[in-house]
Amino acid sequence: MFTTRKQYEPYISPFDPCPPIRVKTYVTAPNLYIGFQPPNLPQFPLREALMKGTLWKVFYDPYYSPYETKTKGDGS
């Protein structure tokens, strides 16, 4: 499988004017990994799929603000 969030640690200067963000995060969505969609993948129930924005579990990758969810803080 794959992860849809990646992290790296940017260079921090001793002279940076703002408190440094030590870990930066970016998104690597499922569409980067799957290629042509294989047949018979698991699906959400139809009503749930309509709300989630996809029928396919493998493509569901919701984004939450890291400022909204204090616990995670990485946009996952």
Binding site: A29, P30, N31, M51, K52, G53, T54, F59, Y60, D61, P62, Y63, Y64
Partner: peptide
């Protein structure tokens, strides 16, 4: 907005 973002992925 999360729904719309998911549609972009699809």
């Amino acid at each position: 907005l999360r729904f719309l973002r998911e549609r972009e992925i699809i």
